[in-house]
Amino acid sequence: KYSDMIVAAIQAEKNRAGSSRQSIQKYIKSHYKVGENADSQIKLSIKRLVTTGVLKQTKGVGASGSFRLA
């Protein structure tokens, strides 16, 4: 599940300011076997996790910027 992968990526990075979408994508692609549409799936999952309150956006708008666990 992409949401689990995103949470794992943010936990692994341990950046106080949060993790960027690009760094999350890079982590997921190197640690998991994902399909061609992974980028758009990650983007959608990040937006969903922010609206449900699992992630907090520290910089930027939408799916860009930095995110950390709430």
Rank of each mutant, 00 (worst) to 15 (best):
S45Y: 12
L55A: 01
G65W: 15
S19F: 03
Y32M: 04
Y27F: 08
G62K: 06
G35R: 04
T51F: 11
S3M: 12
S3V: 12
F67C: 04
I6A: 02
G18E: 04
I10G: 00
R16Y: 09
V7A: 12
I24R: 01
T58L: 12
L44M: 11
S66T: 13
K1N: 12
G62V: 05
G35E: 06
I24F: 03
A12I: 03
T58Y: 10
Y32Q: 00
V34K: 02
L55S: 01
G18Q: 03
V61E: 11
A38C: 12
A12G: 04
I28W: 15
G35H: 06
S19K: 04
G65M: 14
S40L: 13
S30H: 08
A17R: 12
K56M: 13
H31Q: 04
A8E: 10
V54G: 01
D39Y: 10
Q22I: 09
S20G: 04
V7R: 05
Q41M: 14
L55Y: 01
Y2Q: 00
Q41P: 00
S20F: 03
V7L: 13
V50A: 02
I28K: 01
S66V: 13
K33R: 09
G53K: 05
V34G: 02
T52K: 11
Q41H: 09
N37C: 08
T58N: 07
S30G: 06
A70Q: 06
G18R: 02
G62N: 07
L49D: 01
K33D: 12
G53I: 04
G65L: 14
V7F: 06
I42K: 02
Y2I: 10
N15S: 10
S23N: 07
S23A: 11
S40I: 13
L44P: 01
E36Q: 12
L55P: 01
K43Y: 14
L44A: 12
F67I: 05
R16T: 10
I46V: 03
I28Q: 01
Y32D: 00
R16C: 15
Q11N: 09
V61Y: 12
E13H: 08
K33L: 09
R48P: 00
K56N: 05
K1R: 12
L49E: 01
L55Q: 02
L69E: 03
D39A: 09
R21M: 15
A8F: 05
Q22S: 11
V54A: 04
A70E: 04
V61A: 12
L49H: 00
K29N: 05
Q57L: 10
I28N: 02
K43S: 14
I46K: 02
T52G: 06
L69D: 02
L69W: 03
K29V: 07
L44S: 08
Q11S: 09
G35C: 15
S45E: 15
G62L: 05
K33E: 12
G18C: 15
G60P: 06
G35Y: 04
L44V: 07
F67K: 02
R16P: 15
A63S: 12
K14G: 14
